[in-house]
Amino acid sequence: MAKVKVIEKYCKSCGLCIEVCPKKILTIGDKTNEKGYFTVICTDQEKCIGCTLCAKMCPDVAIEVYKDKK
């Protein structure tokens, strides 16, 4: 089990995480943050493998990734 969490106040809706996600489970949502950016949401947490590629590509450090301990 893994989980991806987008911290809304940092997200600027640039979409770099969406492209790099190997499972294609990230998309731009329909809610805005305090600055007016439509923040990224995860459509299917179940599919997340915790690879952290989205977090590494995010230019605003807006993504946290959690993974089960082995």
Partner: peptide, 21 residues
């Protein structure tokens, strides 16, 4: 669950002022 990626302590909480992307 264990945090495998989070904001570094070397950064403050201030959001970057750069343009998106």
């Amino acid at each position: 669950m264990e945090k495998v990626f989070a904001r570094s302590k070397g950064l403050t909480d201030v959001p970057f002022s750069f343009c998106p992307g």
